[in-house]
Amino acid sequence: MLRIERHSGPQLLTYTDDLARLRIRVFRDWPYLYDGDMAYESRYLKTYVEAPGSVVVLAWDGDAIVGASTGIPLVEETEEVRAPFERAGHTLEDIFYLGESVLLPQYRGQGAGVAFFEHREDHARSLGGFKATCFCGVQRPDDHPARPADYMPLDAFWQHRGYRKQPVLSTCFSWKEIGESAESPKPMTFWMKSLD
């Protein structure tokens, strides 16, 4: 039985190395194919330690972290995350950004994915003032050579959680993909849900 815990602030420093290793391991798989490194991950996770209102939800199996999910007020995010909302006329202060969820494959289908969304949405509500939550997912072509034959996109799961794809809200994130010699931009599309 997985144990789900919500953490914020400096207490996260205890877990940053474990979180970095987990993110590198999970994001190496399709559809991200991320060729990550600990130095980048440490810098990335520092944002969630320092940013006001941020949250990290952890999934534990005994003493091992097997999953994690992040969230942060959109105003605290990077320019590539904020810019699509600014261009579309959204008020950034109204939106809580759900960073990402990572879970080791053997623990999927046990409720952690639902718990990750519920905890982050509850956290946003507890802060007050947020009218919506959002996240983004990478857009890969259906004929991408690395796409597994049995891959099932998460669109139906996200829709069941109340999220709707927002084609007008898109951006690019850059990371080094397996087989690449340097970072390259990857297209990302946002999904949103009202907190009303």
Rank of each mutant, 00 (worst) to 15 (best):
V55W: 03
P73R: 08
R28A: 15
D35A: 14
E77P: 04
C136V: 03
Q159V: 01
S101T: 15
K131M: 04
F116V: 01
A156G: 07
Y32R: 08
F85L: 00
D17V: 09
V102H: 04
P185T: 05
W60Q: 04
F117L: 14
R43Q: 13
F117I: 15
S181Q: 13
P185I: 00
G137T: 07
G128N: 09
C134S: 07
S170H: 14
H160F: 03
E77W: 03
W175N: 08
P153T: 11
D61I: 01
S42H: 14
G162C: 09
E76I: 04
S42W: 10
E100N: 09
E76L: 02
Y44W: 12
V55Q: 04
F117E: 07
P10D: 13
K193F: 01
S184T: 14
L103D: 03
R82M: 11
S54V: 09
E121H: 03
Y40W: 15
A149L: 12
K131R: 15
I65N: 07
K46V: 03
T70S: 12
A149S: 14
P148K: 06
S8N: 10
T14K: 14
K46M: 11
D94I: 00
T47P: 01
L13V: 10
Q106P: 03
G71M: 04
L92C: 02
E118A: 14
M38E: 13
D63T: 14
L98V: 10
V102L: 02
F117A: 08
D142H: 06
A182E: 15
R87Q: 01
K165S: 06
H90K: 05
D35V: 06
I4T: 13
L12Q: 10
A83F: 02
F157H: 00
E5R: 11
A156L: 01
M1N: 10
T78R: 12
E41W: 05
G113P: 05
L19W: 08
D17C: 05
R28L: 01
P84S: 00
A149H: 10
F173E: 00
C172V: 11
A156D: 15
I65R: 12
E180L: 07
S170D: 06
Q166G: 01
Y40R: 15
F85R: 02
M38R: 12
E41I: 05
Y44K: 12
D17L: 11
V168R: 01
H144P: 08
C172S: 14
Y48W: 02
D196T: 09
A146R: 15
Y40D: 15
I95W: 02
E93K: 11
P148C: 10
E86I: 15
D155Y: 01
V49R: 11
A20G: 15
L58G: 06
